[in-house]
Design a protein around this nucleic acid. Structure first.
Length: 277
DNA sequence: CGTGCCCCCTGTCAGC
DNA sequence: TGCTGACAGGGGGCAC
């Protein structure tokens, strides 16, 4: 579910409320979301303070005062919610982990499908993990020349390439499809067959879609919520994702849905010609 | 090694 | 109304 814009929005909503707070209690209701064992997790977080809230790709990273990192991957349906004592909103329906912060405040990991994971890492482990991921698409190391060089080394369909977090982080199925439509590239074009002249447009499209989605506080299709439980509004700006049969805003042709790599891809057959042969 | 396919799990919705 | 199957923002594991 949540891609970079959703994770970024959660980080922005969480930083103020939880930075500096001590984790005074940890109730693990669904142990299968904890990577590496529930008791090690509980022992590792109890009594620690949250020093910083940040993000690596789609993952939310809580840096603790002993330099350990609590990495939260939201999977398809995960939410990371800050709740205060007098919170008027109804209590979460599928809490998996509840961390108590004192003053009646809680940090709740909520996940219906439980594809998400909470992983407590020591500093070296975090470094290794992060080093295995691709560049941040909104960061300085993600440049059009680097993208062109990286694309040239893979025969994967470009949509699959964009979803691979070792290549570039943070792009998921919604924003991959949106960026490819803007760049007028068919999702099944092999990465290495994208002409270098087309790479700057793809680079620009990826960054624009992600930035615009952050501004809209993400896309809520069903499960995603901000740290305060609110919905994101980028759904109204989607040009292809979920619009099968509706007209392309550019050329009025009917948006198509195709399936490969076990996932739906959405495209405009007028704007995004299929790869030859 | 790179690539593609299956599966993890629960909920919702369309079609019958 | 209720059943069945398809499908859903992700990613790990495994076969080739």
């Amino acid at each position: 579910m949540p891609e970079l814009p959703e994770a970024e929005t959660i980080v922005q909503g969480l930083a103020g409320p939880v930075t500096g707070q001590e984790i005074q209690g940890a109730r693990i209701l669904k142990a299968d979301v904890i990577q590496g064992g529930a008791s090690a997790f509980r022992n590792g977080v109890l009594g620690r303070s949250i020093r910083q809230v940040s993000r690596r790709g789609k993952n939310i990273v809580l840096t603790l005062d002993d330099a350990h990192r609590l990495v939260v991957n939201l999977g398809m349906s995960g939410r990371l919610l800050h709740r205060s004592h007098q919170d008027p909103s109804p209590p979460p329906t599928h809490p998996a982990v509840i961390m108590e912060l004192g003053h009646g405040e809680t940090l709740v990991y909520h996940d219906v499908r439980r594809f998400g994971r909470l992983h407590l890492m020591d500093a070296p482990t975090y470094g290794d993990w992060s080093a295995g991921l691709g560049p941040e698409p909104l960061g300085p190391r993600f440049t059009a020349p680097r993208l062109a060089a990286d694309l040239a080394r893979s025969v994967s369909p470009i949509r699959s390439w964009l979803l691979d977090q070792r290549r570039v982080v943070g792009v998921g199925n919604i924003y991959a499809n949106e960026a490819l439509h803007r760049a007028r590239i068919h999702p099944q074009v092999p990465a290495s067959r994208i002409p270098s002249s087309a790479v700057p447009a793809l680079h620009r499209s990826i960054r624009k879609v992600l930035r615009d989605a952050i501004r809209a506080r993400g896309t809520t299709l069903r499960d995603y919520r901000t740290a305060q439980g609110d919905q994101g509004s980028y759904g109204t700006q989607l040009r292809v994702y979920g619009r099968e049969g509706e007209p392309c805003h550019r050329c009025r042709e009917s948006i198509q849905r195709i399936v490969f790599g076990n996932r739906s891809a959405f495209l405009c057959p007028g704007c995004q010609p299929p790869p030859e042969e």
